[in-house]
Simulated assay, not measured.
Amino acid sequence: MRALLTVIVIAALAWSIYWAVGSTGVNTAFNTWFEDRRSEGWVAEVSALETKGFPNRFDTTFSDVSLADPETGLAWEAPFFQIFALSYKPNHVIAVWPNEQRIATPLAKYDLASEDMRASLVTQAATTLPLDRLTLTAEALSVLEEGAREPTRAKALTLAVERQSVAENSYRLGFKADGFSPALDWRVQIDPNGTLPDTLDALSADLTVDFDAPWDINAIQTARPQPRKINLRLAEARWGQLELQAAGEMTVDAAGIPEGEITIKARNWRDILKLAVETGAIPEGFAGSLEDGLSLMSQLAGNPKTLDIPLGLRGGRVLLGPVPIGPAPRLVLR
């Protein structure tokens, strides 16, 4: 018994020393990271940084966090931010955000509110902490753009990311928003006559993206990896009588210009066309001819209420068949 007690005491003492050294190392690493960002010209401030959780956890709380990257113009402020990790499994962390925070971009500022926003993140065993998988959830999320009359809301939001082994820097992403309600200003632009409900019935996406670099610590402190190939398995939106689905593949060049083809399946497409005319997205004088052409396409497909629309992405333009209908979006992550 005396020998067993001695072993237990020594083990407990060794573990206590390990936790003390580990927690000190965690604080030092985070403080060094903030100092390095400031030396690069960032705004990187925190009023307090503390690690607790003895004996099995490293639970770090940052108080009054303020980060701003001068190169991209992105900034984030929060009253606190927490990172929880098991002391014997430091590559798996839980991140917790406060109920209120602010994000600023070069284009606008946004106030975020939520009841519970957190993420589970697992990294690979490397000094740059490359992402292996991530799951982010948020409850009762609202995003209010500065100057807007009403926020965009979602009852629940889930984002899942998993590294794929089939290609370097390839990640599968899944997104789902339940009870998604667009901001009033946006709804008025899309539906000026108020014919659609306030909330979408469904909004989700499943895709695989190949990037030009891995998502690791450098993605925060240096530059965001940029998409180079996108395989959209399915994106779906249902809003009242309107239903859209999209699938396809595209490549993205260094300027962010996509090349490829996306097929849009539109149910009740005449209602969608009517909305596009009412909002001015399609000139009223062109609507009749366009409806006749789309009607012929839907009849040939065998279902007059459903329309499969192949959209080509070439030369910086979006094309319906050989006809350009607008500029292609630039896919660049700031």
Rank of each mutant, 00 (worst) to 15 (best):
A3R: 12
A3D: 11
V7S: 11
I8K: 04
A11P: 02
A12G: 10
S16Q: 12
I17F: 00
Y18N: 15
Y18E: 15
G22I: 10
S23V: 13
S23H: 02
S23W: 00
V26S: 03
A29E: 05
N31A: 15
E35H: 06
E45G: 03
T51Y: 00
N56M: 14
V65T: 07
V65L: 10
F81R: 13
F81Y: 10
I83A: 11
Y88H: 14
K89D: 15
V93R: 10
I94W: 01
N99M: 10
E100D: 09
L107G: 00
K109S: 12
Y110H: 11
D111Q: 15
A119V: 09
Q124E: 11
R149Q: 08
E150H: 11
P151V: 06
A156D: 04
L159K: 03
V161P: 01
R163A: 13
V166R: 13
E168V: 13
N169R: 05
N169L: 07
L173S: 07
K176E: 14
F180T: 05
P182R: 03
A183W: 01
R187S: 07
G194W: 04
T195V: 14
P197G: 06
L200Y: 01
L203T: 03
A205F: 01
D206W: 01
D210N: 10
D216R: 06
I217E: 13
N218D: 15
K229R: 15
A235I: 03
G240S: 09
G240M: 08
E249W: 02
A254K: 10
G256N: 03
E259Q: 14
E261I: 07
N268S: 07
R270E: 08
L273N: 04
V277W: 03
I282W: 01
F286L: 15
Q299E: 11
A301P: 01
T306Y: 00
G315V: 10
L319S: 12
V323T: 13
V323A: 13
I325S: 02
